[in-house]
Design a protein around this nucleic acid. Structure first.
Lengths: 352, 352
DNA sequence: TTTGGTTGCTAAATCGTATTAGCAGTGCGA
DNA sequence: TCGCACTGCTAATACGATTTAGCAACCAAA
C-alpha cells in the first residue's frame, strides 16, 4: 500500500499556518496578499521538506481546468506516420506542462461519441481530432462541447473548428519542379492517380491537391504529362501493377509516385524490366516513409511533416482555448504546414 | 461559451429528491437502500432527460480512482511497432472503460521522473512502463507510488513489478524449426548476431534469447551453424554489409536474419550477387515488420505480437491494481506472449 | 402506552484545492 | 478618544460527486 500523499493541509500544519496562507504562497500570490517573508519561507521549506505536489484532480475540480488535452484519431496503428504526429503533439504538450489522453475511433461514430464524452467527462481543456491520412470528415457534434482542432482533416460541412493540414498543393509543385530542374520534359508518368484531375481515388484530399500542384507547375512550364494510372489502394502491389501496365506501352523517363509505398512497388516493376533508377527512369514520390531511405537507390520524396503537424495542432488548440476563455469568436482558420523535399538518389537528368 | 454541464444536483432538483437519493439510484444502490420504484423512475427519467453524465474529475477526487491509466514509453515514434502496442493497450483499456494517458521519456531520467509525477498527480490508477524494443531497464523509483507493469522490458535490478514480454526464446526455436522442417542442415548463417552466444550487440534481450532458441533447436538436431555476422545496428545497411561479407566466402543455403530490416538489406546483397530467394538461399527472419509482406518474395518471419503485448499489459496491470487494493503482496510474474510464425515465400527446401 | 423494527428518504461530512470575505492588531491624524 | 487605513493572516465556501449516519413516519408486539 502506498503511503498517503502529502496534501496542502499537511504543508500548512508543518509550517504552522492556515491552508489559505500555504495556498497563497505556493501559487505565488504571497506578495500580492502581503504574506511576510518569514512565513513565506516557512511554507516554502515545509512544502519542499514534505515533497508536496498539488493534487491535480482536486485542482481540476476547483478551477475547471485540468492541463490535459485529448488526442482522438481514427486509427493510430495503420500509418507509421501516426507515431510522429503523436510525438509532435506530445512534445508540444510537454512544453506547456500538459498531458495527453489518446483515443481511437476506428471510424466508428458510436465509439467516437463515447470517446469524446469520456474525454469531456474528464474535463479536458481541449481536443485534437486527427485523421491519419488527409481527408474530409464529418465533425461529430460532441466535439463542440469545448475547444477543438481538426488535424490532417477538413470539415465536410461548414464548421467553427480550425484545421491543421500539410500543404499538399505546394508539395505537388515541389515534386514537379524537382523533375523540371533535373531537365525532364518528356515521358513523365503518374503512379497512383490518373493524369486527369478527376482520376483520383476515394475521399482523400492528398491525391487531388498533389495532382493540382503537379499540373499547375508542369502546365506553366509547357510540359505535358505523358500518362498516369490510378491505384485503388496506395500499397506496393498496386504500384507494382500500375508500373507494369505503363511499361507495356514503352519506357517512361520519370515517374511521380503518389506515395512511397507505391514507389516501392514501382521499383520492383522497373527492376523486373531490367531498368535502373535513376539512370533509365527518375522517380520522385511523396510522404518520406522510413522505407524511402532504405530503398536502393534512396528515394527522393516530398515529406509529410507529421511531427510538425502534431506540434502545430497543439499550438492552434491553445490559441482556441484562449479564445474560448476570453469569449472571442473568430473565423476558423486553415493552417498549412510546409512539406519539405528530401532530395536523395532517385532523380537525375534524362539520358541525352 | 459552452453551456454549463448538468450536475447531480440538477438531476436531483428535477426529480424532486435530494442529491443523496439521486446518487444512490444512479449508482445502482437504490434497491439496497430501499428507494421506492417510483422515485427511482423519476430520477432515472430526469437524468435521461437532462443527459446527465457524472463529472469524472469530481468522482476521481471523491473516490480516489480515476479510471485512467498511464502509458509511458521511451519512444513511440521510432518503431512502427509502437503503434500496435499502444493500439492493443488502447483497446483493452476501452473494454474496461478506462482512458489512457501517454507520455514519452526519450530515455531521459529527468523527463521520466517528471512524467511519472505528472501522472500520479492526476491520480492514475496504474502505469504501464514500456520499452519500444525488448531490453532491461532501470526501474525509476517514482513508479512505485502505485500499481505498475513493465512492458517489453525486464528490471535491471530486482523489482516488485511484473513484466510482459514477447517469448523470444521460443521465437528462436520457431525460426530454426522452419529451416529444419524445410530440410536445411547445412550452410545456415546468422545475420545480426555472431554464431556464438556472446556475439550479440548492446543490452537488448531479443538478440540473446533468439540466439538461445536457435542454438538449442539446431544443436538438438545435430546441425551446426555455418557462420554469423554481428550487426552494430539492426538496420538495412548493416544487413547489406553483413550479407556481402558472408557472400565473399561462399554461397549460404539459408539465412536467419535477426530482424526484417536486416533481412531487407540481405535481400539487396543476394540480389547483387544474382542469387534468388528462396531458390538459391532461404531466408527467415523476426518481427513481421509491414515491410516483410511487401518484399519480393514475401518474407517468412516470426512476428512480434505488439498488439497482444499491449492488451496483455493492461490485463496484468488490472490484476496488479486488484492486488494493491486488497493489500495482497505477490511475487512479480514474468508473462511471455507467444510470437507466431508468419509463413510466407522466402523459405524452401535446399537445392538437391 | 411504550418499545422496537421497518420503510423511505435526507443532512452532513468528505475528497484537496482556490478564493472571497473578513478579522484582529497597530499606527496615525483629528 | 474615536475613526480610519493598513498589515498580515484565517474562516468559510465552493467545485461535484460519494457515503455515513440519522430522522420521521408507521406498524406490530408487549
Amino acid at each position: 500500500m502506498s503511503p498517503r500523499r502529502v496534501t496542502l493541509a499537511d504543508v500548512a500544519k508543518a509550517a504552522g499556518v492556515s491552508p489559505t496562507t500555504a495556498s497563497l504562497v505556493l501559487s505565488g500570490r504571497g506578495r500580492e496578499m502581503r504574506i511576510s517573508q518569514e512565513v513565506e519561507q516557512r511554507v516554502l521549506k515545509a512544502a519542499d521538506d514534505l515533497q508536496y505536489r498539488p493534487n491535480a484532480v482536486s485542482v481540476g475540480l476547483r478551477t475547471g481546468t485540468t492541463r490535459t488535452i485529448g488526442f482522438v484519431s481514427d486509427t493510430v496503428a495503420t500509418s507509421r506516420l501516426a507515431g510522429d504526429m503523436i510525438k509532435g503533439a506530445l512534445e508540444a504538450a510537454r512544453d506547456r506542462g500538459v498531458m495527453l489522453f489518446i483515443g481511437e475511433t476506428e471510424g466508428d461514430p458510436e465509439l467516437e461519441r463515447r470517446l469524446l464524452q469520456a474525454m469531456h467527462d474528464r474535463q479536458v481543456d481541449g481536443i485534437i481530432f486527427a485523421a491519419m491520412f488527409t481527408r474530409t470528415i464529418k465533425v461529430p457534434k460532441e466535439i463542440t462541447a469545448g475547444p477543438a482542432v481538426l488535424l490532417n482533416a477538413l470539415p465536410r460541412q461548414p464548421s467553427t473548428l480550425p484545421s491543421v493540414l500539410p500543404d499538399e498543393i505546394e508539395a505537388g509543385r515541389t515534386a514537379a519542379r524537382v523533375l523540371l530542374e533535373a531537365g525532364h520534359r518528356d515521358g513523365i508518368h503518374l503512379i497512383g492517380v490518373g493524369p486527369r484531375l478527376r482520376d483520383v481515388p476515394h475521399g482523400g484530399v492528398a491525391a487531388v491537391e498533389r495532382l493540382t500542384g503537379i499540373r499547375e507547375v508542369l502546365t506553366e512550364a509547357g510540359v505535358k504529362i505523358a500518362g498516369g494510372r490510378r491505384c485503388a489502394d496506395w500499397q506496393p502491389e498496386y504500384g507494382l501493377d500500375a508500373t507494369r501496365s505503363i511499361l507495356e506501352s514503352g519506357v517512361p523517363r520519370a515517374l511521380i509516385c503518389f506515395n512511397d509505398r507505391i514507389a516501392f512497388g514501382a521499383y520492383q516493376a522497373l527492376s523486373e524490366h531490367g531498368l535502373r533508377v535513376p539512370e533509365d527512369v527518375s522517380v520522385v514520390s511523396f510522404d518520406d516513409h522510413p522505407l524511402a531511405a532504405w530503398m536502393r537507390p534512396k528515394l527522393t520524396t516530398v515529406a509529410l511533416p507529421h511531427y510538425e503537424l502534431g506540434r502545430k495542432a497543439v499550438d492552434v488548440l491553445f490559441a482556441e482555448i484562449g479564445h474560448h476563455r476570453s469569449g472571442v469568436v473568430r473565423e476558423p482558420e486553415i493552417h498549412r504546414v510546409p512539406m519539405p523535399l528530401r532530395p536523395r538518389d532517385s532523380v537525375t537528368p534524362p539520358p541525352a
